[in-house]
Design a binder for these strands. Structure first.
Lengths: 259, 259
DNA sequence: GCAAATCGCG
DNA sequence: CGCGATTTGC
């Protein structure tokens, strides 16, 4: 059976409902991980997801952050934030659901602002904690999918102009190295199917005709433990929604598995 | 030939385009006077009016005020504000167009805030200057239509609760008397056709279910010099748009004439 | 360039 | 309540 997961930074789940409905009413997406929902839990448009046939776990705050996982099947377990006993919990930036022996972790990794900003340290700490969480789950005999807006472009071909991005918090050597470390033992499912350049999932609103000129970033990722990765049949970026009415600045990244 | 004029406080002409298009693409309105357009001239949605077949004269500012007159026929003359040589000109609150020997004056009379506020004095001065303008034009042998948001409910039946409105700047004895004076020699065209109570053109957004409960005001008026008034075939309030999506807090008032 | 929040206003 | 303007964030 073909099982599809998607990650999509929506930049406000309420503003993006028309885009989400247009997409999901015409596609089978089994698990949908959203970032930047920008809605308090009491403001989350739960009914819209229920109407599309989804269960949905979500945790948000006003204005910033916020994550959700919508799924056609009800998850067996939900973890808000990191359950490693440390502070802060980051419950509006990390959310995990378990289906049987598969953990799906959805993260909105802090952007980091600039390499000399405190937030950049927070970003690194956040990544280290994802690594711990993934390791713990693998040690526990589980299979793992880690998806989300990672705010890291792993390779030169993952940004439009790598030359002038050396000091960018999403492309600095240090953050790419750290991200590489966290990804040790995981497979970049998208890249394993699509090795070519020019594949982006985010185009800044402020860059003129960014989509047409394809000046973007690949910072939204789908990573899998090897046992799952070898069951993956395809992975692709669904570019269309970035060109629809009132788009997010990101577009969905998907992967299918033969489970 | 039946000739129809309408007055409509749009509360932002840009926000009200869907309402205006829904209305005007299904009705013949020869002259449409708008108030509270809330758009600088460079921001006025001229093309939308051109697409509906209108000429349009407009003068606005950001955030507040702003008037426009759209007409199927091109006017012979346009006057922005008051042309009596006095200051202030009030060019974003008063606008006149002439078709042959008929002057159409469109005003957004200042609300006045409170009876002890300077703006209430400005309101009175504004009304006195409309009186002068109308008198001058009649003396000049012209026929006159004065329409707009007058911010005066002339009679008890023109407000939902006259008892507790005695000190309201739109219903105080003094402002009604002054408005009555300005209207000397003119006919309240709407009232001449519709004498019954409960006829309102404005329902405050802040009053819960104001439209259903009909808690409103009749402060938008169509007044005509007697020569024109006797040619009027009907006058009515078009209530529907107040119930449409994203409505103004006002609704159009119309009058038809056999010219 | 978008989105949300806050604010002044009626 | 719902406009526009302003500010902040990415």
């Amino acid at each position: 059976m073909s099982w599809t997961i998607a990650t999509f930074n929506v930049n406000s789940v309420r503003s993006r409902l028309p885009v989400l409905e247009r997409w999901l009413n015409n596609s089978k997406v089994d698990v949908l991980c959203l970032q930047e929902t920008k809605a308090r839990d009491e403001d989350f448009p739960l009914q819209a997801f229920v109407d599309m046939g989804y269960f949905v776990a979500f945790r948000g705050q006003k204005s910033y952050n916020g994550v959700a996982i919508a799924s056609l099947e009800e998850p067996d377990e939900i973890v808000y934030g990191f359950d490693d006993g440390k502070e802060p919990v980051f419950d509006t930036r990390a959310l995990s659901v378990r289906f049987g022996d598969i953990w799906v972790m959805n993260t909105y990794v802090p952007q980091g602002k600039s390499i000399d900003h405190d937030d950049y340290m927070v970003k690194q700490e956040f990544l280290r904690r994802t690594q711990t969480t993934i390791s713990d789950r693998i040690s526990d005999g589980k299979r793992v999918l880690w998806v989300g807006d990672m705010n890291v472009a792993p390779e030169e071909k993952d940004v439009a102009n790598p030359k002038n991005k050396a000091k960018h918090v999403c492309f600095h050597r240090d953050i790419r190295d750290l991200f590489g470390t966290v990804c040790q033992g995981l497979v970049d499912v998208f890249r394993s199917h699509r090795p070519e350049e020019g594949e982006f999932s985010f185009w800044d609103y402020r860059v003129k005709n960014a989509l047409d000129r394809n000046i973007g970033w690949r910072i939204d990722h789908i990573l899998a433990s090897p046992d799952l990765a070898k069951l993956s049949s395809d992975s692709w970026i669904y570019r269309d929604p970035r060109g629809w009415e009132k788009p997010s600045d990101h577009t969905p990244v998907l992967a299918s598995f033969d489970l």
